[in-house]
Design a protein around this nucleic acid. Structure first.
Lengths: 195, 195
DNA sequence: TGGTTATATGAACGGGCGTTCATTTCAATC
DNA sequence: GATTGAAATGAACGCCCGTTCATATAACCA
């Protein structure tokens, strides 16, 4: 034991965020203490405050980093030419990205109510920007007469809920591969939008 | 102030559950203290223990009551004759039931990780029983050649996720009536299952 | 090699936690 | 009107919380 002092800044920082992400996802923000996180990192609780302003700031940083990642990754994604291609691209991207980060996803959806109002507004804005990505695809498809949608806004929310739901049951050791899951969901999404 | 003592058993019990449900939904189980609940009820914290074994038991009772309600309500629902009618019935029922109980729904989905293992097993069992209701409908429709499903199990999970997602955005003061929402989602569900 | 600085310790702060229990209060019964 | 018992009080229990800070240490740079 007894990690002695010295300079481990570049190690402790990431380890802190990793531990916090894992513990918050498992037990919930309010149920995890700074001392638990510190123990996981192998450090005393006081040392954490060299890296974060406070517990709330830690949660906010984790959520913001996740959503920034999400939006940046979509920017870097090949999006296809037609609305149908774009929707397939989005569907597969969303599933893949979310399955790769189960803890971050869990926190982003479950801990919104533990954000202070100012922090919540920032996160909510990023979430809406991502929602708009899908909404724009669906509207373009509807305008082009490729999709049949009773309500574009509701279809957006319905598709995202359906896709994000994958994270609640998917296990790497399960019956289906990721690619198979992507395919099955794409099949259902395509039919749901009438294409 | 100062609610004095006396016999309020039949009043305090329900009020305790109401307050706990509201507060747990708003702030999360771990973030709400017994003293906050007691204050909401208008009583000292110690008095709550005349009605519940402990905080964990309170959470468990709330979740169990919700799922018992859900299964009982479905039993009492007219289910239609054909798989298509049954699916419409289920879709509308699920949306209606969940929109009527936003707090209970929120707790049932968010606080699973705060249940002790034994309690979790009970709740999980009830949740799976409800899932099976939809799975049976989908399988019947698939066997009858009415539904086209790439994977019955995944379709079950996808549809439930999609429908339950309504609770995250629906507001009574919003653009659409409940009936309109039911209709729009039924349209999307029907198409998603290829009927 | 010695001084500087980043990084950690560990104790302390005030306060809130879930739960228990002796005691008090009051409505209902005889 | 006295007795009874359910239902509440309010203080106390030991414990953990997030955060701060004086102090110690080890790596880096002159």
């Amino acid at each position: 034991m007894a990690r002695t002092s010295g300079s481990h800044s570049d190690i402790t920082g990431p380890r802190l965020r990793d531990a916090a992400q894992r513990l918050f996802a498992q037990h919930g923000y309010a149920a995890v203490s700074m001392r638990q996180i510190a123990a996981e990192v192998g450090v005393q609780a006081g040392a954490l405050y060299n890296y974060i302003p406070d517990k709330q700031g830690l949660l906010f940083n984790l959520m913001k980093a996740h959503l920034d990642d999400l939006l940046a990754a979509w920017q870097a994604e090949p999006k296809g030419e037609t609305p149908l291609e774009a929707l397939e691209s989005f569907t597969r991207f969303h599933i893949r990205f979310h399955l790769d980060r189960p803890d971050a996803v869990f926190i982003a959806y479950m801990e919104l109510r533990n954000l202070e109002p100012a922090n919540f507004a920032v996160i909510e804005g990023l979430r809406k920007r991502y929602e708009t990505v899908l909404e724009d695809i669906l509207r373009a498809g509807k305008d082009a007469g490729v999709f049949t949608l009773p309500d574009t806004k509701l279809a957006t929310l319905a598709v995202i809920a359906m896709l994000t739901g994958v994270t609640t049951w998917y296990r790497d050791t399960g019956r289906l591969s990721r690619d198979r899951v992507e395919r099955i969901y794409w099949n259902m999404v395509r039919k749901a939008v009438g294409a």
